[in-house]
Simulated assay, not measured.
Amino acid sequence: MQANIKGSTMPVLELQLGPGESVITPHGELSWMSPNVTMTQTTSAAGGGGFMNSLKRVAGGGGLFMTQYQATNGPGLVAFASKVPGHIVPVDIHPQRSILVHRHGWLASTPGVNVSVALQQSIRSGLFGGDGFRLQRLEGQGRAWIELSGELTRYNLGPGQTMLVHPGHVGMFDQTVQFTMTTVPGIRNKIFGGDGFFLVALTGPGEICLQSMPLPNLAHALLPYIGAESGSAGAAGGVVGAMLRG
Rank of each mutant, 00 (worst) to 15 (best):
A118N: 11
V89E: 06
G7F: 04
D195H: 14
Q16Y: 03
R143K: 12
V91G: 00
T110P: 01
F192E: 11
G158T: 14
Q178V: 04
Q161G: 05
L127Q: 13
S109K: 04
V37Y: 05
S98D: 07
G76T: 05
G7N: 03
A235F: 07
F173N: 09
G150P: 02
G234C: 09
Q68Y: 05
L30H: 07
T72W: 11
T72V: 09
P214L: 02
T183L: 03
M66S: 07
N53Y: 03
G49M: 07
L223V: 08
L244T: 11
V200A: 08
A144N: 02
M163K: 11
Q2G: 14
H166V: 13
G241N: 08
P11T: 10
V239L: 15
P19G: 07
P159R: 15
K6G: 10
V101H: 00
R97K: 15
I99A: 10
V113M: 05
I5M: 06
G238Y: 10
F80R: 08
T153R: 03
L64C: 07
S31W: 06
T72C: 11
K6W: 08
P35D: 06
G62S: 07
N73Q: 11
G186F: 01
S22L: 07
A71Y: 00
G86C: 12
L223S: 15
V37R: 02
L15T: 00
Q96R: 14
I99L: 12
H166I: 15
F198K: 13
S116M: 04
W145K: 10
E14K: 06
V117A: 10
G47Q: 00
F192C: 09
A46V: 04
K6P: 04
G130V: 05
P85A: 15
D131A: 11
L157K: 06
G160W: 02
T176G: 13
A108V: 01
G130H: 11
K56M: 13
E29G: 05
E147T: 04
G50E: 08
V12C: 08
G47T: 05
P224A: 08
H104S: 11
G50Q: 11
G126C: 06
M181F: 03
S125A: 12
Y225M: 03
Q120D: 14
V115Q: 07
Q175C: 15
Q141T: 11
G204L: 05
G7Y: 00
F51E: 06
